[in-house]
């Protein structure tokens, strides 16, 4: 490690961050466009050529507005929890299989679990420190949902880890060269998909902020910059979850543009689900996590463990 390498890593990180942010910006645009066409209307199409510059206009608008803060909030916690959640969601992107090994994680899966678990705290703190009943209740809803689904997420992940016997995300490619894990563990991959929908608080399970029935959730007291940061963190975690789906089940990182196409398709799927499915019921959501996904993932874990032992 010479200074030169350190510079290279810094440049790589910068490119990564910029890429993620631009990706998030255009994911929001894609979402608005797709939702628009699903509901037979046009999405944003005025700013720029056909609405190309809409996300930037939104970002500029959000960041130039005045940020209000509640008088009785716990100011430091209130102010910094969106920042921390944004930083965490950028940090998690270190895991991306980079073309020239930005950082080669041997324990990448563990890092992912750590970062998502920490992300829950920011939601909790954001809800609590706003010192408002709605924010507190919204935060509690979000936290209960997120940690429940984290359990099933980790257990589903265990099966994949057993199959590759490693924590390195790059290893998923060489084990899927012949056939994708999507076919090997089809039901599990569907479980993973819906768990990641719940984990990122996306639509069929968006009880953290159901706009129409519930008052907006933990982020009700946030405006301008803080809100933008929460928003960015959410969307970058959506992108990350879709990348993880591609890595785990759709053939891994195979050094081709196909990887990114698959990633885009999965993130389109997230949006498609939002445009199609009605919201679930909260108690059913909890039962789904604890009574369906937990036993299913445990049984599959046993099954794949046996299979792996059989092969050894």
């Amino acid at each position: 490690m010479y200074m030169f390498d350190i510079y290279l890593i810094m440049i790589g990180l910068l490119i990564l961050i910029i890429g993620v942010l631009v990706g998030v910006a255009y994911l929001t645009l894609l979402e608005r466009k797709v939702l628009g066409y699903i509901q037979i209307r046009k999405g944003p199409n005025k700013v720029g050529i056909v609405g190309i510059l809409q996300p930037f206009s939104d970002a500029i608008k959000l960041f130039t507005k005045e940020q209000t803060y509640p008088n009785f909030s716990n100011y430091i916690c209130y102010y910094f929890s969106p920042v921390v959640s944004f930083i965490l969601s950028l940090m998690i992107w270190l895991l991306i299989p980079y073309y020239f090994n930005l950082i080669s994680f041997n324990l990448g899966v563990l890092f992912f679990l750590c970062c998502t678990s920490l992300g829950v705290y920011t939601v909790m703190v954001a809800g609590w420190s706003s010192n408002s009943n709605y924010a507190l209740l919204g935060g509690l809803r979000a936290v209960a949902q997120t940690i429940s689904y984290e359990v099933s997420l980790a257990l589903i992940l265990m099966s994949s880890i057993i199959m590759i016997m490693d924590f390195n995300l790059l290893k998923f490619f060489i084990f899927q060269e012949y056939l994708w894990f999507f076919f090997l563990m089809f039901p599990l991959s569907l479980c993973w998909m819906s768990s990641s929908l719940a984990e990122t608080n996306r639509t069929p399970f968006d009880f953290a902020e159901g706009e129409s029935e519930l008052v907006s959730g933990f982020n009700i007291e946030y405006s301008s910059g803080g809100f933008a940061l929460i928003f960015l963190a959410e969307y970058s975690s959506i992108l990350f979850m879709s990348m993880l789906f591609v890595l785990l089940y759709l053939g891994g990182f195979n050094l081709s543009i196909l990887f990114y196409l698959k990633l885009s398709f999965i993130s389109f799927l997230f949006i498609w689900v939002r445009g199609t499915l009605p919201r679930y019921r909260y108690d059913k959501l909890m039962y789904l996590a604890w009574k369906s996904y937990l036993p299913i993932s445990l049984n599959f874990l046993l099954f794949f463990l046996g299979f792996k032992i059989l092969l050894l």
């Binding site: 199959m163 060489i174 084990f175 899927q176 060269e177 012949y178 056939l179 076919f183 090997l184 089809f186 039901p187 299979f307 092969l311």
Partner: peptide
């Protein structure tokens, strides 16, 4: 169908594992 697909996938996985 599920059993068939999984059996085929397990066969392919076994081949892949041998190769690795």
């Amino acid at each position: 169908g599920y059993i068939g697909i999984t059996a085929f996938a397990m066969y392919m996985y076994a081949k892949n594992y041998k190769q690795i």
